[in-house]
Design a protein around this nucleic acid. Sequence first.
RNA 1: GCCCACUUGGCGGAAUUGGUAGACGCAAGGGACUUAAAAUCCCUCGGUGAGGAAUCGCCAUUCCGGUUCGAGUCCGGAAGUGGGCACCA
Length: 895
Amino acid sequence: MLNSSDNKNEKNHSSRKQNARYEHSAIEKRWQKLWNEAKKKPQNLDEKAAQKKKYILEMFPYPSGKIHMGHVRNYTLGDVLARFHRAKGCHVLHPMGWDAFGLPAENAAFEHKEHPQTWTKNNINAMRQQLKSMGLDIDWQSEIATCNPKYYKHEQEMFLDLLDKKLAYRKEAWVNWDPSENSVLADEQVIDGKGWRSGAVVQKRKLAQWFFKITHYAPQLLEALDSLEKWPEKVKTMQRNWLGKSQGCVIRFNIKQKQTEQENLQENLVVFSTRPDTIFGATFCAISPNHPLCEKLAKTNKQIETYIKQANSQDKNASKGAEKEKSGIHSGLSLIHPLDQNIEIPLFVSDYVLMEYGTGAIFGCPAHDQRDLDFARTHSLEVKPVVLPKGEDSLTFAITDTAWTGGGTLFRSKFLDGLTIQAAIDKATEALQKKGAGERKTTWRLRDWGVSRQRYWGCPIPVVHCKKCGIVPVPRNELPIKLPQNVSFDKPGNPLERAEEWRKTKCPNCSNSAERDTDTFDTFVESSWYFLRFCDPRNEKKAISEQAQKWLPVDQYIGGIEHAILHLLYSRFFTRALTDCGYLEELKEPFEGLFTQGMVCHATYQDEKTKKFLFPYQVERGKGTQKNKWFHKESGANVIGGRSEKMSKSKKNIVDPQKVISDYGADTARMFMLSDSPPERDLEWSGEGIEGAARFMQRLWRLADENIVEAIGGESESIKRSDEGIKTISSEELERITHQTIRDATKDIEQLRFNRAIAKLRSLCNNIEACRASDKNAQAQKSHAFATLLRLFHPFIPHITEELWQKSGKQKILTETAWPDFDEDKAREEEVVLAVQINGKMRATIKLPANCEQSTAEKQALQQDNVQRNLGVASVKKIIFVPNKIVNIIAEKTS
RNA sequence: GCCCACUUGGCGGAAUUGGUAGACGCAAGGGACUUAAAAUCCCUCGGUGAGGAAUCGCCAUUCCGGUUCGAGUCCGGAAGUGGGCACCA
């Protein structure tokens, strides 16, 4: 491992030669300072500049206090692109901010008695320093933090606009309730159905909460996915599934006349089905315990009331997955089959029917739906098959314990008999429609976005509750509604509810005393529009200025796959909603390109006896025959080396980026992050890997010694070495390779294939070494190749390349130097190697001038010894020729 | 259960999108330099067979089958691994 004391020794020993080794710390600091000074003010785009804009954005971090390797990977990837496009002459927006609201700050306040604001600010300061030490080309002047009232003021205003447009509304919804703490819990605070702090079994409670009407945009959100060509297919699939469009039919079942009169009920029950073809297989109907009809029935039926309570007390997380035994209770009501007045169908209440989906009511067709079948078996209901699979006999076909969900033809279904499923769906829907008993309907899995959180550290919801006027929006000129500073965190629950002074206010309408809403927004709200704010972050008048119109869409958004659904979908929704509220003109999709990076993984280590996890720095590999074993560094105890998993605190398989940067430097860390694994795949962190990257820095440094010194006429010692047995290339070849490398690496960077780009740059490095400077011309060529190497490497490892660039006597700093162009003529190969195949098998290779004639190639190919030998007595039937690639001789044995 | 992705040496991965499989790197082994170590440099490195050697052959991209002059790449099937959703009617 490199550490500073070693470096000092090295320096003393080789005092005759300065800069023998690359010492990162001083150099990196120096360049970070110089870049910062050279940085131009954030640019406002004019029409012309907007033509060449690139908005590069990485998902902004939550200020936890320390950067982790995931951040290093994320921001390095973005930084390479930002630096690359800047060199290409683009106007680049590459900002950074903080997703600063959220639960951890509140927890910290509870545990360490530190105000969330103080905690967050300290964390931001610490993390900013760490990010800066990575040498990121970020516009720090446009930094934003979402907990700043200057930021969330606009969010409150947006909310009022959404309210005006009826895109925000209030309704009752279930929350997790901790009965011991008397407080609402976030989903992540519920562990195995219990409160994380109290351990009490969590209950469900209904509270009035705010919702955003994302479902209004469901069709657009689905359709537009097709236009997102630069998004990973995987993410689009996940979003499609999440939106969950399904086409079907709503069907009205009349409730038996006598009953509706008696109990003053509605006349019919509306169910949703994607399989109206199986309507004659319906042997029961079921409604959700939370269905309005069920709630009415509960008033006169104690059993139903009990069942509802039971169903709602179960934690939803605990009862995940389909159970064979399906609970339920008869409602006491009967329904009339919509297509046959003579059929009476019993109505059940069951918790396997979800109120949130469809109409909260279903008709059960046990023969052709597994869940209905399970329910029917549990409650001994009739199972009536109406779809006959191919090859089955209508008289003998029976359902046992698996429902038939495949194809077939309808039977026992009157006018549907003999039809295929699709034809029957159409005909049944038509019949229902004619009778006025149903119609086509599209249903979505997506539900409206509940944004109320019973938390302190979030953006306050700007409404007032007045006894007389109801819910009254706060007038715009009173915004922002700031969070009160003086609050206590020593008790569980929402501190805002206890902040009497803040809570009590006057109704803007009638001036009577009223109360503020004590809920705050889900933190996903802040992250749904921050990328718009970055374009003009200090604009106090407008949340989103015309600058956003010019900078958006984000050209390349980079982040983790974990945000594939929620954050990205919310942002897509928000952009549309804001457009409808007049904040933007004509912006549909916020992120044109999306890149989801892989995770950073590391092997896990466990003490063999205690099974406790150990940090990587606590263990070492055995020596000699013990090579595959691991031991505790201090105690020598046996350690189990586990498989590689995502770095996480709980498994202790983490490596601290700060330590890596101070030991090896930012460039080494960046190099390692980028070099081997493709960015979308998981990256395996290893000590050998970082050492390898560090070695490369030294190699580049030495290579500079040979190439720069020679170029400016000095003398180099290390050049004096034996050429015996070493492969060498001519300076002409080096020139060609240099231009090819510019061409290929540029393409790779554009496509975010950084590992390939780096492989090609390393290869160029090898070739520079392999080229012997025999004369002045060759020396100039080598020097040019090396300068090109520095320019190409700069986005990846900016500090060392900048330093070497300056050492080579260049006036302009590399960060402001244009990307190299390649010369097509110089990149062109004069000679190519063709493969010669016989019946598709490789037999020889031939070297020929590029683009040579088929006849020449054939002649050459046939002359090869090995070709002749393999051909033997066989006769040539046909020759396939692909220019510059292969000659395939098709031969047939002569008999 | 449904949907999706992936599978190439000891390891991470290349392969110009159907045309010489294994670039680049890590690890490993051997050697040079050194009193020694570190660093650096050189050589070997998918398996296997023949040969003193240069070489030559066979088998290899998870497995089975297909299309093609030619398949890691396209199509069909199977297995394994990972991921998403999950009582969604």
